[in-house]
Design a protein around this nucleic acid. Structure first.
Lengths: 171, 171
DNA sequence: ACTTTCTTTCAGAAAATTTTGAAAGTTTAG
DNA sequence: CTAAACTTTCAAAATTTTCTGAAAGAAAGT
């Protein structure tokens, strides 16, 4: 093994590790984030076997997390001609990745809470105590809806979706 | 127990539950989010005891999570004259809450990854393989830095806008 | 149809995170 | 100083999440 390879491997590992940690702080599991990191920095498509051996994880785990990444739309299956097995590549356009993640999280997390706020706001208004409660729920609902709309606009806008609308978010 | 109280309690519970679930999807633990929800919809400051009994959690757990919320700057200690024990109130201005959360997450999560990307980019450039790697790391670094700056600007821009409405929201 | 090669599933195991509760620490009052 | 009233800490227990690996499923070649 060459000295220079060592350095590159070290850097790769460090990056994969860090990306995994970041992911786990954002409600994405560590391994899923690591698989994503590995695919991001791999110039060539990787097979399930590659992912398993490079990250030291089981077949089932690798499969589950690759599938989840495909669900999120940030990893693609790739078939090589003359090869039976599947290979995987990450979406390399980071803006696209961020966009897809924001779409997914909006759908999975923001929308459910908005729905529940709507339900909960319909509590009987016959008590004084309820007034403060519904006022807060109303505020939260307004906020969530605004955030939701802002995200939606962001995603619909083109190339500069992020900056064009992100800075306007709170105005 | 009155029928109308039931309905309000139901709604409160449902909201607390939902907020807890949301939190757990965002890397905030369920109980911490529930304590936050409870304080958000409580017109009066609550004591540790109140939180323990309303959420059915232990003293240690209540204390730990209240402290974490205080660290995040979205819950405050409040001392009542003539009372020995401490009471807690949530920041009721949702924009302020969102701002504080974005400040905290930027500091705790975005900054560390930017630091690591910087380190990792300094890998030896003597191999062809390394080129693709450093290119991707560079892209990620640029993206993260931009996101970081955007968040910073957002928070700063908000400060101006925010002062106008600040006083009237504090009752 | 059968074999080979690869993918998916899922129940149980392992790991990580969260919670508890009792003990230790702190503060205030007398 | 001592007791009373709270708050904080932390090791062990409970819970939740994640991972494994063997078995079942699918697809392609012969």
């Amino acid at each position: 093994m060459y000295v220079c390879d060592m350095k590159l491997e070290e850097a790769r590992d460090k990056f994969i590790q860090a990306w995994g940690t970041l992911g786990s702080k954002w409600g994405i599991n560590r391994t899923m984030a690591q698989v994503h990191a590995l695919l991001l920095i791999s110039p060539e498509p990787l097979s399930a076997e590659d992912i398993m051996s490079q990250l030291n994880i089981s077949r089932g785990n690798a499969n589950m997390n690759v599938r989840a990444l495909i669900d999120w739309g940030i990893v693609y299956k790739e078939l090589k001609p003359g090869e039976r097995r599947e290979f995987f590549v990450a979406e390399k356009d980071i803006w696209e990745v961020a966009k897809r993640i924001s779409i997914e999280r909006r759908r999975r997390e923001l929308e459910p809470i908005i729905r529940i706020l709507g339900q909960v706001k319909e509590v009987e208004e016959t008590h004084e105590e309820a007034e403060e409660f519904t006022a807060m729920i109303g505020t939260l609902e307004k906020f969530s809806t605004k955030a939701d709309k802002a995200l939606e606009r962001m995603v619909k806008a083109d190339e500069h979706w992020f900056f064009g609308t992100f800075t306007k978010l709170l105005k």
